[in-house]
């Protein structure tokens, strides 16, 4: 009998070998985060390394989730590699999970490298628990990787994948307070920003790293991230395509987009109650 997860270990291992051996992957996973780090550290956040880190780490997680994951999925499908897997007994769940694990491992390497070099060069401080910081980053990656895979499933080819990724990447980075501190903006704009999923990751990371808050104080953003993860994972089980000739389940796309939108609207509405719109350190 075929078990739904047979081959998960070897396929994940093969994916990771591919990522570690590919020069392009090494550039995006290791060099690119350093470029952001030095851009932020030496120019945008000169002299304020502690304020810089939550947004910077969020950007690394988002760009890794969107560009890394969606490009790899689309190019594998376009080349016909997924089609080759399809004529073996391997299940779609196995392929999706292996992709997700690969993404989480490479994201972990990216943020660890960025955080380490950032500390060595800029000496930022972490006011809360290091363990909670790591857990929130992992949760953030786990919440955004499925959204990147969503792009990978929806995009028809390597021409549309970058377009869709960029369309989502810019609001996620610039509308979330990741690229510049949101507390500088008027309160109502900050509320509107709560519609952007990544603002919860920025919020949670700022909470633990800058304000030194604990799990219970950050339960609001953590819940939103967890729900994003659950909805996104469900979405991928519905949308995965071995071949572009397979029709996209448009109803599943619309349902999920609607559910995600409802989630973020509800969260935006509740945000003040979570005390999520606060100036760091206040």
């Amino acid at each position: 009998m075929s078990t739904p997860l047979r081959g998960l270990g070897p396929l994940t291992r093969a994916y990771l070998l591919q990522s570690f051996r590919s020069r392009t992957a090494i550039f995006w996973n290791l060099v690119f985060p350093m470029v952001w780090l030095f851009l932020f550290g030496f120019i945008f956040y000169r002299g304020q390394p502690t304020l810089m880190m939550p947004g910077l780490l969020t950007i690394t997680l988002i760009s890794g989730s969107f560009f890394g994951v969606s490009y790899l999925m689309v190019s594998e499908r376009e080349a016909g590699i997924l089609r080759r897997y399809r004529v073996t007994p391997v299940s779609a769940t196995t392929v999706v999970l292996a992709n997700a694990i690969r993404a989480l491992v490479t994201l972990t390497i990216s943020v660890t490298a960025q955080a380490t070099v950032g500390w060595l060069v800029f000496r930022y401080e972490v006011n809360g628990s290091l363990l909670l910081t790591a857990a929130i980053m992992l949760l953030g990656g786990a919440a955004f990787v499925p959204l990147g895979m969503f792009v990978g499933s929806v995009a028809e080819d390597m021409r549309s994948a970058p377009a869709i990724s960029n369309l989502l990447f810019f609001p996620l980075v610039f509308g979330s307070g990741a690229a510049f501190p949101a507390f500088l903006l008027p309160g109502w704009i900050q509320s509107v920003m709560r519609i952007i999923p990544s603002s919860y990751l920025v919020e949670a990371l700022q909470g633990v790293m800058i304000r030194g808050q604990g799990v219970m104080e950050l339960i609001g953003p953590i819940t939103v991230l967890l729900l994003t993860l659950v909805i996104g994972a469900w979405l991928n089980s519905r949308l995965f395509r071995w071949e572009t000739t397979q029709p996209l389940d448009k109803r599943a796309v619309l349902t999920t987009v609607a559910v995600l939108l409802a989630l973020f609207l509800a969260a935006a509405f509740l945000a003040p109650a979570f005390e999520m719109v606060t100036r760091p350190g206040s």
């Binding site: 594998e76 016909g80 080759r84 004529v87």
Partner: peptide
């Protein structure tokens, strides 16, 4: 069933 597809690609870097 063993299959060789006409249009196919193998995983890279392996």
């Amino acid at each position: 069933l063993g299959v060789q597809l006409q249009k196919t690609a193998l995983p890279t870097e392996l």
